[in-house]
Design a binder for these strands. Structure first.
Lengths: 217, 217
DNA sequence: TGATGAACATACTACCCGGTATGTTGTCAA
DNA sequence: TTGACAACATACCGGGTAGTATGTTCATCA
């Protein structure tokens, strides 16, 4: 699923790392961080703790690396649209669609991102892990700001209408992120079905931001 | 905060129950269900486990009663609007505003409701607790259906435009519930400030549902 | 072929947490 | 006055969990 070859490195070791990340992300998605034990993750891998602690220093470290991987994927996905020379509302729409698809396709990782932000807001974790969490949340804030900038531009260009930018940004991400909570893959579902869902979500968010419909003359 | 006098009962006992519910709701909001220990709740009350287990049979029972209380408050809040003889979009708007205010004012309880639904979707809890959870989630679904019905009517009346009713309902609640995640009371904040936030949230949701602005002729 | 180390599995420990069993104290009715 | 009970506090137990220490296996390389 996640394919990141680093350097001239060890594809075997990297493969093992990713398998663990995927399994852990799935567990965290199903039960949440606190309710997931390392043994749960190991069981899903048909392995034992030893395998996990050989690659990750702690449960929090495992969680943090899933967080980072999820955000890496998000940044990579919207990268092609970040500096398009088009009306901001169009750039925003393309990024939003891509973002929603990411939420659906990489649900498990995105749930971890969500829970990570929540944990940070609540002030969990130990002081030492705190700095790493701060960095990750900052990373996510940068991502958020990419959308925020397009929204501000779109408002200036008269294509969006909302009062407070921060609140609008919050609402937008709540809408775009929502499928990580309620989307369940249906058997026999194809790309059109998913695109249909994506369209409705983006349409909702654009409408919420006072964006005009493309169809109006 | 929660004032429910039952029968000709014991106001003292009821008061003690509510204090525990408030403290537990605050803990669950801050750390989540799994990460909150009964001792955490007791500590917040400057008491010990004994007090809690004297009034509640288990951690899950405590959680469930917060869930129920939260939904009771929600139902009570929208009750005056449920059968108004007005355009559906207006009824919806009044209910939505009331709902969002509830989310802000009773944040802690509403976070428990949220987490309870999540836990149910993920299939946590033991089989016995399962039936009680099913009932609570059903209770919440009934609440959701009150809004759903108005949305369907508003679409029929030409005042809202969306494709799939279920998805629209999901998106709407994501938007209206969103302050339970990001709202933090500001020192010196008054009712106008809150109403301003409520307005923006409801405006976002109405826009998302393709609702027309009141101001347009 | 022998040594070395990566990639695990096994075994163990210290700790925390839900739940229970058992005090203790104050109140109130007879 | 006493006894009975509500409303807690205290003490304790068993199970689970993060993390560690210690095997074990197998490939690679000198």
């Amino acid at each position: 699923m996640v394919l990141v070859e680093l350097g001239t490195g060890e594809p075997v070791t990297e493969r093992a790392r990713i398998e663990i990340l995927d399994a852990a992300a799935a567990c965290f998605m199903e039960r949440g961080y606190a309710a997931t034990s390392i043994d749960d993750v190991a069981r899903r891998l048909r392995a034992t703790k030893g395998r996990i602690y050989h690659h990750f220093s702690s449960k929090a470290d495992l969680f943090a690396q899933i967080f980072r991987t999820g955000m890496d994927m998000n940044f990579a996905a919207i990268e092609p649209f970040r500096s398009l020379d088009e009306p901001a509302v169009d750039v925003w729409t393309k990024m939003a669609r891509t973002h929603v698809r990411q939420m659906i396709v990489t649900r498990a990782y995105q749930r971890v991102v969500w829970e990570g932000v929540e944990m940070h807001l609540r002030g969990a974790t130990t002081p030492e892990q705190r700095s790493q969490f701060n960095e990750l949340v900052e990373y996510r804030t940068q991502y958020s700001n990419v959308f925020r900038a397009q929204m501000a531009r779109a408002r200036d260009e008269g294509d969006m209408h909302f009062a407070d930018l921060s609140i609008a940004n919050q609402m937008m991400f709540m809408a775009l992120n929502s499928p990580i909570f309620w989307y369940k893959p249906r058997p026999g579902e194809n790309m059109q079905d998913i695109d249909n869902i994506v369209d409705q979500i983006v349409a909702f968010a654009r409408g919420g931001l006072g964006g005009k419909d493309k169809e109006e003359s």
